[in-house]
Design a protein around this nucleic acid. Structure first.
Lengths: 332, 332
DNA sequence: TTGAAAGCGCTAACAG
DNA sequence: CTGTTAGCGCTTTCAA
């Protein structure tokens, strides 16, 4: 910066003013400073800048490398913050990095707010965090005061799936849950409420969020002797996919012998060889809300009138993996 | 920090020493400082720390939200740097954020080195960047001095695919390229060399990296009247998938009417309903090398003896989408 | 419209 | 082993 100031023949203050796009510099000076900076290849040190200005305007984002949905959300967050002066500080959760580590790193960078994608911590833990920095939870509702959240209407989404299946004539439906994941409790209770309302038989089986989890659960269902369900609703697309693999591998056909519904409408679902019927999440809207809230909090705006969270509607995308149940008994 | 020092009854220096895990503090003091910090909820300000220590030990990583392979690489990078004192500063390329913006942001955070995943910039541009900070390119070789790189042996991988297909009896093979992507030139020339060596007919068709790209290319192939190829090798799994979709949609069967090979061995390929034969990239090894190089550069180590880059071997994973060609003529 | 000085939270030399 | 001092690159008063 000193170099730029010298090259442009002005003081450091002027350089600062120009780069902050603050008023107080003539157009002529501005141009000369920018030219000198470009010449030298100067980029303001974001760390020093934040350090001195004391207010960190950066938004920290905790996401998971393994969740396709998070990549769509990241896209949405960048879109929502582009144009603003706010940087996104990314902190990933991976196989070798825990959520706590990710959050700690965000704290160390003194983000002005944190957007946590699918935080698997308790409300209490999150609330404690809120003492230090405003937090917006994505993919899970929260109950604590001053804890913002935004998530898909999980229960509503599952209800759409159940109604679709019931309309096709299904009487026995199983939900493959992923107990430790965000949103699973809501989807599970939504499922139970929906099957109850429709007067059909619904069972819940703990599966998990990955393909192998779905496959294992499907195998379990096929191996059991009881009247087999004719339709499966999975916690997410990957789980749905795994279940489908297993069913086909056992010589059965989808959707003839088993209808399958996923959740997310991730790329896997869309591009698949067998087009997966799924519940689509509106990631753009979720991201927009999360970003908006985070920026509000950073600006110190806390409106009593606005609710803590937002439930974003889902949309059922009917593709090729759902159909009427096979009426002629079971062939294994 | 001052608060912690007061609470622990020591000077700020001691607190600094304790948090840096530097020698010069008694175990007793150390414990007292840590206790006080935990009590207060103190986390050292990473920005101030880097600012003062002048050497930024952080590693900047440019990645793309849309590339499944990058998420595996991120995992690998976190694993490779965990345990070291180096932070990973992530900067994403998304629909609304260009590579230049991503790099600029990394520069603004004064990373000690940058790992660029699949940089689509010219060697010249990258070389200019190297003046400011050491750069390690991933997924593409580079020719410039002091520009480190690591990528899969693209040509070798394609050769494995070609040999596999030729061994099955294929005589006409088409490669679906993605001209603007990293690695495509290498794969294309590797393909041409391999078909030449095998004495079979090989053609190249520009497709792209997404499913729709692959589908469009496949349609083009099916619509042309010339002797149709009996096997396709795609730039990546998504492209392969899209081509497969189109082929099946036209009433043909894979691999009977057309064998298909992908590239990457991404989750799509592995979990797919139709198990995709593909060329696996060793992401863990690539990530390890990239991280190792970056840390070396940060440490100021430049060994003349070591090569600029590394070509990591690939592995052909034979699944269900390749088989002998249908000998009875073409049925449309 | 411009410049000089002070200081953000921390680390790195020193000295005790 | 512990404390004091100076300053990283920037922004922010305040004065010219």
């Amino acid at each position: 910066m000193t170099d730029v100031a010298r090259a442009a023949g002005v003081s450091k203050t002027l350089v600062s003013i120009v780069f902050r796009e603050a008023p107080g510099a003539s157009a002529e000076t501005r141009a000369r400073v920018l030219a000198a900076a470009a010449q030298i290849g100067y980029v303001p040190d974001e760390r020093a800048r934040m350090l001195r200005s004391r207010k960190s305007t950066d938004v920290g984002v905790m996401f998971s490398t393994q969740q396709p949905l998070h990549h769509d959300l990241l896209d949405g967050l960048y879109t929502a913050t582009s144009g603003s002066r706010h940087n996104l500080i990314l902190s990933a959760v991976s196989e070798t990095r825990t959520q706590d580590e990710a959050i700690l790193s965000l704290l160390a960078f003194r983000c002005g707010a944190i957007i946590a994608l699918a935080p698997r911590m308790t409300d209490k833990h999150l609330l404690a965090l809120t003492q230090d920095v405003p937090v917006v939870c994505v993919s899970r509702p929260a109950q604590a005061p001053r804890l913002d959240w935004v998530t898909s209407d999980d229960a509503g989404g599952i209800r759409q799936a159940v109604r679709h299946l019931v309309a096709l004539g299904h009487q026995r439906i199983t939900f493959l849950s992923s107990p430790t994941d965000c949103g699973s409790p809501e989807r599970e209770s939504g499922f139970l409420a929906a099957v109850h309302a429709a007067g059909v038989t619904g069972t819940v089986l703990a599966a998990g969020q990955t393909g192998p989890h779905g496959a294992r659960a499907a195998a379990q269902i096929l191996d059991s002797l009881e009247p087999r369900p004719t339709a499966l609703i999975a916690f997410n697309d990957r789980c749905a996919k795994g279940a489908m693999d297993m069913i086909v591998q056992r010589g059965l056909s989808v959707p003839r012998d088993m209808s399958i519904v996923g959740f997310d409408d991730s790329e896997v679902a869309q591009r698949d060889y067998v087009q997966l019927t799924t519940v689509r999440q509106d990631t753009a809207k979720i991201a927009r809300f999360a970003a908006e809230r985070a920026l509000q909090r950073i600006a110190g705006i806390y409106l009593e009138s606005q609710p803590d969270g937002l439930l974003v509607p889902t949309q059922l995308i009917v593709r090729a993996t759902t159909g009427p149940p096979e009426t002629a008994g079971v062939h294994t």
